[in-house]
Amino acid sequence: MLLIACPHCGPRAESEFHCGGEAHIERPKDPASLSDAEWAEFVFLRDNIKGLVFERWNHAHGCRRWFNAARDSVTYEILAIYPMGSPPPALDPRRYV
C-alpha cells in the first residue's frame, strides 16, 4: 500500500485515492482542424513511460480534490506533489529509468 501525501489532508493510504492518468495533456487549441489521427493521439494515446511519470490524482474518499504527482513507475516512489495547473517540477528523467 502506498502512502500518498494529499496536499490538503496529509499522508493517507492509497486506497483513498483514484489515479486520473497522465497529467499535462493539453486540449487542442483548434479542435475542428484536427485529423482523426491527431484526435486519437489526444484522446487515447498515452506514453506509458518506464521511470518518471507525471500523473493526476484525486483524493476520492477524502477531500475529493485533484492534484498532480510525479512518480517513478518502476519503484512506485512518489517524487513530488504539486497543484493542478502548475508546471511539472524539474526532475531529471534519466535518474528514474
Binding site: 486506497s15 474518499h61 477524502g62
Partner: peptide, 10 residues
C-alpha cells in the same frame, strides 16, 4: 475529523 474508508464504505 477525517474522511476515509471503513470496511470499504466512505
Amino acid at each position: 475529523c477525517a474522511q476515509s474508508l471503513l470496511a470499504k464504505a466512505a
